[in-house]
Design a protein around this nucleic acid. Sequence first.
DNA 1: ATGGTAGCCGAGCTA
Length: 261
Amino acid sequence: MRIATWNVNSIRSRIDRVEAWLQRSDVDVLAMQETKAKDEQFPYDRFRALGYEVAHHGMNQWNGVAILSRVGLEEVEVGFSGDPGWGEPLAAEARSIGATCAGIRMWSLYVPNGRAIGDPHMAYKISWLTELKEQARGWGAAGRQVALCGDWNIAPFDEDVWSMEYYLDKSHVSPGERAAFHAFLDAGFVDVVRPHAPGPGVYTYWDYQRLAFPKKRGMRIDFVLGSPAFAARVAGAVIDREERKGVGASDHAPVVVELED
DNA sequence: ATGGTAGCCGAGCTA
């Protein structure tokens, strides 16, 4: 079985590429972020025609997350947790769906953007992560297979950015954000991609501006964090940077994880 | 410090 996470940066402008990518990559479950579509704008029909059902889609005032799975797939239960909006508490769905699970539980996460050090959004981001971690700790307990997939908007280590000089004093690398990320590792979650995509110089996101992709100026901010039981099943992982190439690419690459049956 | 690009919508705002 194969699962994936991808910040698509607008599902309506990306639908042709997402469709083509799904067909050639043959994933069973896809978590998407930054769908930027109201529910009535979401291309449900396109995914259904490909054999996927959209388990969840939701958005706040300017963002959105979704998760879709192959029709008939019973092993994976899907949930989502997005940034529910400035000033709002963590989405209630995250609590209720995550509480009673069996089999693989897979989550599509969009961690709020902190914008800048000292910005009120940064404090919000860190408290959002702290609350999520407390819930995830419960989900991952008792040998459950849990995968927290998505755009974390954090580069946890210096080698996860193309230049620490450039990012010094900027968002995504600050000690508070990194501590919030590392707290998930301390809680027993594992970065299941890293062993299969070792760095430095391995990224998942490249800015559209200043020719960042051809200049190899990226960040590793998209992660699949697995509970120990999930991590034990991981057979491989790929960051599909080919998908970042060409006209009409998202600024993020898909991240794919292969599981043993 | 600014501006560079892409996407939302049709002016700024968000990333």
